[in-house]
Design a protein around this nucleic acid. Structure first.
Length: 551
RNA sequence: GGCCCGUUGGUGAAGUGGUUCAACACACAUGCCUUUCACGCAUGCAUUCAUGGGUUCAAAUCCCGUACGGGUCACCA
């Protein structure tokens, strides 16, 4: 029996040969330096922040080079694949506004001419190439059972040898075709392993775009390329797919570094051009003084839906990720206010190569506050309403009812060079402006803290004097504040802070204390935006009503 | 255990042999400004770059060892 016949016997259900596929997927017509890369998740659960990081990074590199960014689903592990995995991935990526040029567009459909983009639909392709290797005597069927493999490993462990199916342990490598055929005819299951041409005592160099030059021993393990179920292993699928899809760059987590020698070897054996690798360190979390990987189970901020539910702007998350990817991004943004991420040129060389960055929610909060502070009030309103429609329906109907009023509130101290930074997320808004709505303010047990002035009669006196004698809705801001000062003078408080500081004992208090009383009576809070604006928005009738609680 | 990678302040980091090299940002602290808060401004926060040696006139930067941390060694990706 020839090798070719043997290959056909081993993998009988192959429709096309490998050359057919080589011709099916022509070279992409792109600029020389265009980056073709992909997001290649396995549909075993929801993406987490680490996935978003590498996915977003790949997206940026593809876009900035006029390349291609595609979505390939790696569902060769049929056991772990979950229902609707693809659309779940697509939905969350869409939430973060990351889109693909090619690939799956829902659980069953796809766009692009380099597909199928779902590995389970590419069985024929993998087997065609596996057949090629068998024909060339570069791969062979292996019958080693789980038990046999365990035995080998135990022996290797007890004799302190390297683990794995290699050298003299790879005994199926030398099995005759006749024996293999007989065992298969007897119903034995088998996998296909590649005959590794590697020598452990020789060195291979990997030029990682992030980590630089990495030297390691050549791979000499006869890796499984086709599993018992006929589907490929990750290693084999990676080589075939990224070759046929003309991927130029593979951006992935650094847990893959140690497999890279193996991958390059598979490329070589298949006669494929190498792809470039960029291995990214994981995101870390500070857990009681020790660093550990950010965990989807333990850390809510690791999950992506968290940001949607909390109402943290996805743009802020991406801004933060951009600074993790290239730490000079932040300085660049400062120097180019108003620029967008897509204007920035990311550089692989500037990606941190250390053990991993701590994912810092405080930093994200800061970025988010800055981001939101620069938006227009109407934009903030739309975003908050959109968020509240799902996550805080009562607040949504309230701000819908008072749309213009709400926008005015959101606009206080906003469109100026140094705007207020009150909110880091949409869910902060109701907590910080609730008192502006009578529905939330009236008929409710409220607690007031007037700070320095505690005497009830005095509070009543300040409020009633102010509203009766001094407050006029028609006043502009300077006039308004001058009247506050007049109020202070009349009641024995210092209207001038310097005068008060120079001689505190000659006053009952100062203008800050008086303003605080008005502010707190109006809102219950001593921490609010500009008092003049609040008074104007609330209006005299409602001011009187709120003050009357103290009469 | 084998192999690989990493280690600069509370955090992210810049810096790869010497001209301010310990930037910048977050956080924190103090002060100023101010009707509160926020903003802003000012100042402070690593005499030292995990550690021990070595090379050099000169090292965070190059070399070797040690410690610690991470990854990997599946018919999972």
């Amino acid at each position: 029996m020839t090798n070719k016949e043997f290959a056909e016997f081993l993998l009988p259900d192959v429709e096309h040969d490998w050359e057919y596929y080589e011709n099916l997927y022509p070279e992409r017509n792109l600029d020389d330096n265009a980056i073709v890369t992909r997001y290649a998740p396995s549909p075993t659960g929801l993406p987490h922040m680490g996935n978003l990081l590498s996915g977003f990074m790949a997206y940026c590199f593809a876009k900035q080079s006029n390349g291609v960014y595609f979505l390939r689903i790696e569902d060769t592990d049929t056991e772990r694949t979950v229902e609707n995995g693809v659309s779940k991935i697509l939905d969350i990526m869409k939430d973060f506004d990351i889109t693909f040029d090619e690939g799956m567009i829902n659980d069953t459909d796809e766009v692009g001419s380099y597909g199928p983009y779902m590995q389970s639909k590419r069985k024929d392709i993998y087997q065609a190439y596996a057949r090629k290797l068998i024909e060339e005597d570069k791969a062979y069927p292996s019958f080693a059972s789980k038990e046999e493999l365990d035995e080998i490993r135990e022996f290797q462990e007890s004799t302190k040898q390297r683990l794995g199916y290699y050298g003299r342990y790879a005994k199926d490598r030398h099995m005759t075709k006749e024996e293999a055929i007989e065992r298969i005819n007897n119903g034995e299951k088998f996998v296909i392993r590649m005959k590794s041409p590697g020598d452990f005592f020789k060195t291979v160099i990997i030029n990682d775009l992030i980590k630089g030059k990495i030297e390691m021993p050549e791979n000499d393990i006869d890796e499984v390329i086709i599993k018992k179920d006929g589907l490929p292993t990750y290693h084999f699928a990676h080589a075939i797919d990224d070759h046929l899809m003309h991927t130029t760059h593979v951006i992935r987590g650094d847990e893959w570094v140690s497999s890279t020698a193996k991958h390059l070897q598979i490329f070589d054996v298949l006669g494929f051009k190498h792809v470039k690798y960029a291995h990214l360190a994981p995101l870390l979390k500070n857990d009681n003084g020790t660093k550990r990987k950010l965990s989807k189970r333990k850390d809510p901020e690791a999950g992506l839906v968290y940001y949607i539910e909390e109402g943290i702007p996805v743009e802020a998350v991406k801004l933060y990720l951009a600074t993790i990817i290239n730490s000079n991004f932040e300085a660049w943004l400062d120097a180019n206010p108003g620029a967008s991420i897509s204007d920035f040129k990311f550089d692989f060389k500037k990606v941190g190569s250390s053990g991993g960055a701590i994912y810092d929610m405080e930093k994200l909060t800061n970025i988010s506050k800055n981001y939101l502070s620069r938006l227009k009030a109407t934009d903030v309103y739309d975003r908050v309403l959109n968020w509240a429609n799902t996550y805080d329906k009562d607040f949504a109907s309230l701000i819908s009812k008072y749309k213009d009023y709400t926008i005015s509130i959101l606009n206080i101290e906003r469109e100026q060079k140094k705007p207020r930074k009150d909110f880091a997320k949409y869910s902060d808004v109701s907590n910080s402006i609730w008192y502006m709505y009578d529905e939330l303010f009236d008929n409710k047990e409220l607690s007031y803290d007037f700070k320095n002035i505690t005497d009830k009669e005095e509070i009543k006196n300040i409020l009633s004097t102010y509203i009766d004698k001094y407050y006029d809705e028609a006043d502009d801001k300077d006039t308004w504040f001058n009247k506050i000062k007049s109020l202070c003078d009349e009641l024995g408080y210092a209207s001038d802070m310097k005068a008060y500081k120079a001689n505190p004992d000659s006053f009952k208090g100062n203008v800050a204390d008086v303003s605080t009383v008005i502010r707190v009576a109006l809102t219950t809070s001593s921490m609010t935006p500009d008092l003049y604006e609040l008074l104007r928005l609330i209006g005299k009738t409602r001011i009187i009503k709120r003050f009357s609680r103290f009469y």
